[in-house]
Design a binder for these strands. Structure first.
Length: 205
DNA sequence: CAATAGATCATCT
DNA sequence: GATGATCTATTGC
């Protein structure tokens, strides 16, 4: 019977009220927070905001369907979906119940369970390659579609306030990998952080 | 270093 | 049948 190990780097779980705010605000504020799943944990260093019906790049723009219903549901839940037949992407639901909005977690800085992450992603040659992308971090942390809809304010997948809040500069650019609303500045990341996914952007950080 | 092709499947047309 | 909130290997300069 293993006693649950308390991570010295993370303290309280973020309350539901944290998520029940405008999606862009939640996205920005998620930077620096700690995502925990089992033995593995990582500091969120890159996110993207996906809005409601007007945001044609968002899955919620397709309307309320079996696959998108989580996005319209209560804040503080996980939306996990399969992309390109191979990788899964993790989103956290924002906005009050009934309003669409979610935040795609694009990159983490590993803070716990690195050996297990390396086991799950043996292809990664460096620590930077472990969680520096939306498909990479879900694989490294063992996050799958089974977690779609779970409450991240309690349970196996949680987001925590960091024990020590560190100051950092936030960068803003358009989102990556989309074909609609390509100019909307909804990607937020911690500047000068090695674990932010590598993208060539004019004047980027 | 830059560009491109291939893997692989749920969802939508 | 096509597309997509991706990642990796390979080719080419």
């Amino acid at each position: 019977m293993a006693r649950p190990k308390r991570l010295s780097i993370a303290s309280e779980i973020l309350p539901r009220s944290f998520y029940e705010r405008p999606t862009e605000t939640v996205a920005r504020d998620l930077l620096g927070k700690i995502l925990v799943h089992g033995e593995t944990a990582g500091r969120i260093v890159e996110v993207e905001a996906y809005l409601g019906p007007n945001d044609l790049a968002a899955h919620a723009a397709r309307g309320f369907t079996p696959s998108t219903q989580v996005i319209f549901g209560p804040p503080g839940r996980a939306y996990v979906y399969l992309i390109y037949g191979m990788y899964e992407c993790l989103n956290l639901i924002a906005e009050p119940t009934g309003v669409a909005g979610c935040v795609l977690i694009r990159a983490l800085e590993p803070v716990a369970g690195v050996p297990l992450m390396q086991e799950r992603r043996p292809i990664a040659k460096t620590v930077e390659q472990l969680t520096s992308g939306p498909g990479k971090l879900t694989r490294a942390l063992g996050i799958t579609r089974k977690l779609n809809g779970v409450d991240v304010t309690r349970g196996v997948l949680t987001v925590h306030q960091p024990e020590r809040e560190e100051k950092f500069a936030i960068g803003v650019t358009p989102r990556i990998g989309i074909t609609k609303c390509v100019d909307w500045p909804l990607r937020f990341f911690i500047r000068e952080n090695r674990f932010v996914s590598k993208v060539r952007l004019p004047g980027g950080g």
